[in-house]
Design a protein around this nucleic acid. Structure first.
Lengths: 187, 187
DNA sequence: CTCCAAACGCAAAATATTTGCTTTTAGCGC
DNA sequence: GCGCTAAAAGCAAATATTTTGCGTTTGGAG
């Protein structure tokens, strides 16, 4: 897989990038140590050592900034573990995914991403999942195994997991196995 | 099915209920005729003929109010059409559901519901879907047909529809049929 | 090195939010 | 019907936030 393009910042290393980094860090720190509703742009600005207007001009509003931060935190940082089979890989990965997303902080991040104006945040999250699944699918293909379409996995595994987290109660981890099984039944 | 409890307002008919009604109406009107980002609490208050503090005290913040309005608009107002079979009923209902939710306004409403603090809004939306599916399921049972669990329908039909709307691109209506088929395959 | 455009800081102005206190209102017992 | 009461709304002052105009800094290109 090719090196990912640099995603957010303008030219790397410039002042702009430094400000973005410190604002992101400030936001993460504040979210970690205080109630989400109490986090405001002036607060983040103070913590980051910049003026509020800098943040307003760059992000527009709190939601956009938090969504930006959340998308970055949702970016997968490791390749899916290998278990010996595509089915096992998918199960292991999906269970961990469900676990992470069900946590209070995970849920908050998803909501932050969805609350922002544009659709690029949600799309990016979707493509992160796609990438991870593609890695598993390619490994399975290399072994000559059958493996479902990525879109099938999205519909039958990822969608139910996120749906339950967002609209109902988080899925028990045991139920992920059933979802994975269903993804492997012929479409 | 029993008459639903009155959901939102305090005592019916009181001043409180009138204020709630006019604020809801004002919010809907404003959302219809101007950009979502331009709608503010002072604006809604003026339109509704109340003071902003009334809204702040009752709803706390714009998101909560908009979520409240959205949940109300998402409440189903008709019983699923009868087509002669459970499968047909589910397909017809799911297609219409996907259609409505994919529209700009539908998407906005879902996002408003998710953006609010508590989880009661999303839960309520989920239970609306559950109720509609239950009606279809009961009719199917009365005819002696096999029909999937409601949770299976949520996982295999509703979840993918909403997932695509929120995170990717809205599903083409033709694809709903495939989802319904999958719901009918043995778990 | 000098210049340019982009991004930031600063501070004043405009809006939005919070809050203490007063007034209104609907329901309740008489 | 008549007060009484608690809940909710109005009002307005105090805060907090967002927006904006303008001057300054900064990093990069020529």
């Amino acid at each position: 897989m090719a090196m990912a393009e640099r995603e957010a910042g303008p030219r790397p290393g410039g002042r702009s990038a430094r400000v973005q980094a410190s604002v992101h860090r400030a936001a993460r720190d504040l979210l970690a140590r205080m109630d989400r509703a109490a986090v405001t742009i002036p607060l983040i600005a103070a913590e980051a050592g910049v003026t509020p207007s800098t943040i307003y001009r760059r992000w527009g509003e709190l939601n956009e900034l938090l969504a930006d931060v959340a998308v970055e935190r949702l970016r997968p940082d490791m390749v899916p573990v290998e278990t010996g089979s595509g089915r096992g890989d998918l199960l292991a990965w999906a269970e961990q995914y469900a676990e992470e997303m069900s946590s209070g902080i995970g849920r908050e991040m998803i909501r932050d991403v969805l609350a922002a104006e544009g659709e690029t945040g949600p799309r990016r999250c979707c493509s992160y999942a796609r990438q991870q699944i593609a890695v598993i699918a390619e490994r399975a293909a290399a072994r000559g195994e059958a493996f479902p379409d990525i879109d099938t996995v999205l519909d039958r595994v990822i969608a139910p997991i996120l749906f339950r987290i967002l609209f109902d109660e988080a899925l028990a981890t045991e139920r992920v196995g059933g979802l994975v099984e269903n993804a492997f039944t012929a479409a």
